[in-house]
Amino acid sequence: MIFSQVVAFSAILNLFCIATIASSSCQPNTWLNLTSLPSPRQEHTTVAIKDETIAVIGGITSNTFTTTDLMQLYDVASDTWRTGSPVPYRVNHPNAAVVGGEIYLLGGLIDGPGTSNGSINFVASGKCYKYIPTSDTWVQLEAMPSGTERGSAVIGVRGEMVYLAGGMSVLQNTYQDSLTTVTAFNTTSGKWQRLPPAAANIPHGRQHAVGSVLGDVFYVLGGRWFGQMNVRGTVFELNLKNQSAGWRTSLGHMLVPRGGLCGDVIGSTYYTFGGEGNPNSLSGVFNETEAFDVSTQRWTELMPMAVPRHGTHAAAIGNRVYIPGGGLQQDGKPVVTNGSVLFSNPSAHFDVYCVEI
């Protein structure tokens, strides 16, 4: 009995030490490497569950643009990965949010009809599911309303509601669209809800943008309009308590406009990282880290990414922003790597940006 108590105490102490060591090594405005993803990924989504687990859902797992149904789960305390129950369908650019400790997967892009020359052809799916961590199971939900199916939307959560802004319905080698659509899913009723006409569209089409809800305001930051190089630095805002007033555009523009970026909120500040469409980089990827303080509406330049990437999502826990995987080069851009010409380069790299609070 005494021996088992000692073993149990030692296990608790080890977990405490892991957390303490990790915390002390996370200095403000620095990057810290974590255990790599089990396999390279990009064009996935990333969400945090109860500040204990980070889920990486769907995406593309190779430089041949292979869409996956893989879900991998990262345990924050132990810095280890495990594989969860597969997503019910293969999806890239998925839209996902966490409400009440459960993941809501609300559409995304799937493989379209194959082409003779192997070109990319991703089209929208409106399939929706809920993931229940306690049973490691997926439950089917009401599909996205016809005509609103899309991937790469900006997600915001307020109470029981999940809001989706912008996104894209098709992604091909030579064409991709950029939507203004804004929709909402009620996680209590399991139904999609209409927004007032003034709130039902953002001011301009955006995809591969970032954003979330802070307080009562839904923010959409950066992104792009159609092609990879058409990057934007705008910030759109919607007061969810006064949706009939519609969207407004902030006077604070990104210092370096970017699409394909990632980010998340800590306190009253939104932190943004990386992106693609950089004409001044051989890889076509941005390394910028920029912060937008919603209280002052000002942007600040911070420590650049140690490993610049695009096509990933970020999840904030405490004073850290976790960024798993992502692409090391702009998709479709020929880049010579280790003697080979690559047109995409998914990474398993996993790091965290440390924020001063």
Rank of each mutant, 00 (worst) to 15 (best):
I2V: 15
V6L: 15
V6W: 04
S10A: 15
S10N: 14
L15M: 11
L15F: 13
F16E: 15
S25M: 13
S36T: 14
P40Q: 09
Q42T: 12
E43R: 09
V47R: 04
I49V: 15
I49F: 06
T53A: 08
I60Q: 11
I60L: 12
T61C: 09
D69M: 09
Q72G: 01
Q72H: 06
A77V: 15
A77R: 15
R82Y: 09
Y89N: 08
V91G: 00
N95S: 05
V98L: 03
V99L: 00
G101E: 02
G101N: 11
Y104T: 00
L106H: 05
G107M: 01
G107Q: 04
S119N: 14
V123L: 08
G126M: 08
I132T: 07
P133Y: 00
P133D: 00
P133N: 02
S135Y: 00
E142K: 14
G147T: 07
V154C: 05
G156E: 01
E160D: 14
V162S: 01
V162R: 00
L164F: 03
A165H: 09
M168N: 12
S169D: 14
V170L: 11
V170D: 01
N173L: 12
S178Y: 01
T180H: 02
T180F: 11
T181W: 12
V182N: 07
N186D: 15
T187D: 05
S189T: 14
K191G: 02
W192H: 08
P196A: 04
I202D: 05
I202L: 09
G205P: 00
R206L: 01
Q207W: 04
Q207F: 03
G211T: 06
L214K: 11
G215D: 08
F218P: 03
F218H: 05
W225T: 12
Q228A: 15
M229W: 09
R232A: 09
G233Y: 02
W247N: 02
S250I: 13
V256K: 07
P257T: 11
N278A: 14
P279Y: 12
N280A: 09
S283P: 12
V285K: 01
N287D: 14
T289V: 08
F292P: 00
S295V: 15
T296R: 09
T300A: 14
T300C: 07
E301Y: 04
L302Q: 02
L302D: 05
P304G: 08
M305W: 04
A306L: 13
A315P: 07
A316R: 08
G318H: 06
R320W: 08
R320L: 12
I323Q: 01
I323M: 04
G325S: 05
G326P: 06
G326E: 03
Q329D: 04
Q330Y: 09
P334R: 10
T337S: 08
T337K: 08
N338W: 07
G339W: 10
G339F: 04
S344P: 04
S344I: 03
P346M: 06
S347P: 06
A348R: 10
F350A: 10
D351T: 09
V352G: 02
V352T: 11
C354A: 05
V355E: 01
